[in-house]
Computed example of a mutant assay.
Amino acid sequence: MARLAIMYHIIRKSHVSELKQRRNDRRMMRYTDRAFSMCENEFIANYRVSKNLFQEIYQNLKAFMPTPKRKSDISPKFKILVALSFYATGSYQKLVGGTYGTLMSQQCVSRAIRDVTAALNHQLVLNKWIKFPQTRQERDAIKRRFYEKYHIPSILGCIDGTHVAIIRPKENEERYFNRKHFHFKNVMITSDADLKILSVDVSYGGATHDSFIWNQHPVKQHLINLNSNGENVYLLGDSGYAQREYMMTPIVDAPVGSPEEYYTKMHCHARNTVERSIGVLKNRWRCLLRHRVLHYHPDVASKIINACCVLHNICITKLDNTIIYPEGNSEDDGHDNLNVIFQHSTASTAAADLRRGIEKRAVLVQQLWARRM
């Protein structure tokens, strides 16, 4: 009799567990189906990508996400939906979990954002979607595209810094605080002529100047090596960067009607590419906007920024232009002390580098002036 009672208890417990699992499966399927039951425009408004592109993102990320260990675990597809909703709105986790199509607790939202962000920061994913051109063929393709659009030769990219606000960190606060009295990450971005991000550096806080970040970046040495080997390539930067052979900057206060003024206008028109790239990035993934503020540790905020840059490049590569964004950066980052240039070389070396850079720019000025008609 006791054996029968035990067997009945085991069978009943198994049946109840199975019913709970079925209810959980139906609940998760219902939430996912609820998201995909939206019309295309509503889906894009909530997740910033089309339904077809979402499927491609899922296929790219599922191999890098944790494998569900229990039947009650949330599926990778649903986690990506939740993370996209957070990136797109910058809302609090509890509000994201209460949104139509992504119903779950705040703790589950937190885990979903963590897992998806980690997948987007996986080295294989980063190297696939954000990569500076390494071959001559890749560089020539980018230079040719810039010349077709802006009629300036040898441009390999445009560079600028942008601010992403974070909450006050508990440690090393002075690294992130700026004169506007808020804390942020100073993110260095390089983009090509089609707004695709070629490199991103999220290592520094807001107290660090753009030029200092550039001087520590490996791309700088890469460009120096290319020019030393006889390949004519350079980036376009604003006046916050030092004029060099590998960095073309505008000529401040150029006389009206002069070749220098003509060069500066063309330079600014072309360099606007990176500002538009940042504008599209922030207007698609609005968690990066200054007034949203990332409520995370600086290291976690850096990973979220990287994740948004990867998603930005996926959208650009797949030509997902279903949402129209304002051209130009959506915020005035207000760089501090733009005329202050940080140097780490000796005075004589810096002077020689500056002289060669000015000479190269003078040649470019005359080339553009001669072709203006």
Rank of each mutant, 00 (worst) to 15 (best):
A119Q: 02
E260I: 01
A351C: 05
A112D: 02
R3S: 11
W214L: 07
F43P: 04
Y147W: 09
Q107A: 11
L236D: 03
R48W: 05
R23Y: 13
A112I: 09
D353A: 11
Y325M: 05
C308F: 14
L195M: 13
A45H: 04
C308D: 07
R244P: 01
V109Y: 12
P68D: 00
D353C: 09
R23N: 02
C108K: 08
R276W: 06
H15P: 01
T208W: 05
D115F: 12
C309D: 12
G161S: 15
S302E: 11
R12Y: 10
H269I: 03
S105I: 08
K303Y: 08
A45V: 01
L120K: 05
I314P: 08
L288M: 13
V363T: 04
I167V: 14
N283P: 09
K62V: 06
L281K: 10
V233H: 00
Y147C: 06
T89K: 14
H163P: 03
T135R: 09
N172M: 04
I278F: 09
A83I: 07
L120A: 07
S75F: 02
I80R: 04
R70K: 08
V164C: 15
I44H: 00
Y246M: 01
P255D: 00
L4Q: 09
H295Q: 08
F132L: 11
S330G: 12
R286L: 13
E260P: 01
V125I: 15
T208P: 01
T322H: 14
S199N: 12
